[in-house]
Design a protein around this nucleic acid. Structure first.
Lengths: 165, 165
DNA sequence: TGAAAGTCGTTCGGATGCTAACAATCTTTA
DNA sequence: TAAAGATTGTTAGCATCCGAACGACTTTCA
């Protein structure tokens, strides 16, 4: 990642290509860097913590959300994780096969499926999450505490806007 | 997207699960919201601007990078876009089939392939990018100008760190 | 009450993405 | 110069992901 060209060069080229038309460069920079950062961070986590536990990114997110909120309905996992329910079905199958979690029909509503971690899954996350969190600290170590809080809040605003429109 | 639980609830649960162990919540919030925002924004762009032009996210990125830097080597497209060269080969095939760009062997170095937009591809981007940029403005409209610049810079720092480690 | 509408998780088919292996080409080295 | 090594784009095989259609179940409402 980390494009070979600087942002300034990119802006110069874009304004050259669109002479006359008005472009919002500040917004362009936010969006471009948002995707770069997410992609680079995901690659970093996959290469480091996740690979040694043989977990894909999505599998980790599923375990994380379940670990925090179990018992949890599958639709909630999909919503929190940001992927489709079709994708989730496959990942749940894999993780269930590895005995890291269980699926169980809800008694109150026969349409729902409840997901829980197994003892083995819980043991994994007790070890894995602190490890993952250390890498989160590393990756964001270029920012101080108040900056982190600002960024998190700003990203949350973007998420809310984009999800609702 | 936009998880059903608030950040505060998540933090409370995590600290309950990991009693005694120290967790860096500020960094956790940055990373969690980074992925939420990227996913929500990408979905938003795909639903709105990209769908009506029958372009996938990756296809759009390829066109965008090529539009700005043509003629450009394929390895540069992959680097700027953040995907593998194998992925790029497929997307280039699709876009070449739709006559939006061309591939051409380099004369200086027989291993390289140079990519250019066709007149039709250039016409598309002249129209599409301003449209896309209006949506970038919208999605980030919750931030003022100086905030946008801060966020962009912070994300760039994260990208650089993650890409190098 | 009972039929229509809504919601849930799963399945299916297809698109997308990656790693590893490969052939073509260039560079290095002795 | 000739062989070994490095680099590039493509291919093949595999995993992941999504939208649409579906069956099971619940809710609505007349």
């Amino acid at each position: 990642m980390a494009g070979a060209h600087t942002l300034a060069e990119t802006e110069r080229q874009v304004s050259e290509l669109l002479k006359g038309k008005t472009i919002d460069f500040d917004s362009m920079a936010v969006v471009a860097n948002l995707f770069r950062a997410a992609s680079a961070a995901r690659n970093h986590f996959e290469r480091t913590v996740l690979l040694q536990h043989d977990l894909s990114w999505t599998a980790f997110v599923v375990l994380w959300v379940t670990w925090i909120w179990e018992p949890i309905e599958t639709r909630q996992i999909a919503e929190e994780g940001g992927f489709s329910k079709a994708t989730l079905t496959g990942v749940l199958g894999t993780l269930e096969g590895r005995k890291l979690l269980t699926r169980e029909k809800s008694k109150e509503d026969g349409r729902l499926v409840l997901v829980k971690l197994t003892a083995s899954g819980r043991k994994l996350m007790d070890k894995l999450f602190p490890e993952f969190n250390r890498h989160e600290s590393e990756v964001t170590s270029v920012l101080n505490k108040s900056k982190k809080q600002e960024i998190a809040e700003a990203l949350r605003l973007i998420t809310n806007y984009a999800a609702e429109n």
